[in-house]
Amino acid sequence: MATVSRGFGGRRQDPAGGDLAARTPPGQYLTDGFPVLSAGPTPGVRLEDWAFEITGGREPVGWTWEQFRRLPSERFTCDIHCVTRWSKLETAWEGVSLDTLLAPVAHDAGYAVAVSHGGYTTNLPLTDLLGGKAWVAHTYAGQPLHPEHGGPARLVVPHLYFWKSAKWIRGLRLTAQDEPGFWERAGYHDYGDPWTEQRYASA
């Protein structure tokens, strides 16, 4: 039995106990805004300098912005969950599936490290990037993705806490072993499942 805090009523977001409550992972609250969180300055990435490269396979594979935008894009709508406890439902994106990006890459890796402009990294098992579960998104709510939210392009892996959805992504490094990324080395959980509240490494 948890400790009851005297006089705390709380504000249930979905008093009817319907769909919204079921879609909000434990310990999260819903927001209509789109909070910005990042560990440093927002890098300005010019489209003519942008490239996406997958290394660690037999051969490196890469795309310029123009080549990337000629790949088939998918529209997808998803709920996103930030470890700082906000969740946002029904976010509308457009991007290239990781299935598409990884298709031409011959490899025997089990993991990937997403690498971003500005030095951010985050690690994921490859199985979490494949099977229609992850995208490199270039469009949010019908508009080019704003730099504050990771534009020109960011990873979107909605089934994990949103720090795994690396902003300003510039590539993937495929690895045989799991290699903890930026927040994963700074006290946060290695995998980050919001439904089992895998927030922190310990604590």
Partner: peptide, 12 residues
């Protein structure tokens, strides 16, 4: 008054 706490957290 009582509440619950988790942490400390953060290494950056």
């Amino acid at each position: 008054d009582a509440l619950e706490l988790r942490g400390p957290v953060g290494g950056y």
